[in-house]
């Protein structure tokens, strides 16, 4: 398989088969919390893609060149949280100063996802050995981070689209809001379960 073949496989698996929200059940908090409106879901999705890509890159470097040489792999969670938190904070400051427009669209969501498990999850999954014992290299880690973010955004937008329409439907009072959202999440997860057996 050439580069693009591998890229395609990674894309399909990150977006559909191993979707962060519906297959790995990571990042459920924004999935339910920020999916009421399509606008805010889109902003959140873009922020997640952005942070996941950056976090993948930096956490990979920290792991490869700081933790592995000293046999400190067991500290990965601690080190990654530290890295992600500092990174997001730093990026937020830079954006606020240099690009007010981008800050307005992403700004509110950036601090929210600092401690999101999906971001930590992608950093840890990037350095976890695959089936044949090998690990992603730097480029594939970054690509995996980006594509996982795309998968997250895709599901978040689908959820927000459905919830916006559900708002207009007449339903029992006890089902309104969060209960129907949870049922909806379950049905969507079932649908994505269909991808589970796929091998590419």
């Amino acid at each position: 398989m050439g580069f693009f073949g591998q890229f395609f496989v990674l894309a399909i698996s990150a977006i559909f088969i191993q979707n962060f929200v519906l297959a790995r059940f990571l990042g459920l908090c924004p999935y339910l919390g920020v999916s009421k409106k399509l606008d805010s879901a889109f902003g959140m999705g873009m922020a997640v893609i952005f942070v996941m890509t950056l976090a993948s890159a930096f956490c990979y470097l920290i792991f490869q060149y700081l933790l592995v040489p000293y046999h400190l792999e067991y500290l990965q969670t601690l080190a990654f949280i530290l890295t992600i938190a500092a990174l997001v904070q730093f990026v937020e400051m830079v954006i606020q100063k240099n690009s007010p427009a981008l800050y307005k669209s992403l700004g509110v969501y950036l601090p929210l996802i600092t401690t999101n498990c999906a971001v930590l999850g992608v950093a840890i999954l990037n350095i976890t050995p695959l089936g044949d014992g090998s690990r992603y290299n730097f480029i594939w880690s970054v690509l995996n981070g980006f594509l996982s973010g795309v998968g997250f955004t895709f599901v978040l937008l689908a959820m927000a689209g459905i919830r916006e329409r559900l708002e207009m439907v007449e339903m029992p009072k006890s089902m309104r809001g969060m209960p129907i959202a949870l049922i909806l999440a379950g049905i969507m997860a079932l649908a994505f379960y269909g991808f589970m057996g796929m091998k590419i």
Binding site: L66, L72, A79, L82, A86, M93, K97
Partner: peptide, 27 residues
Amino acid sequence: GIPVIILGTMGLIFGLVLAFAAKVFAV
């Protein structure tokens, strides 16, 4: 000692960078 030093250094560097950034990129 080594993990403490490494993580401590990481924290220190990140802290310094953020403190520096807060001054430079202050809005």
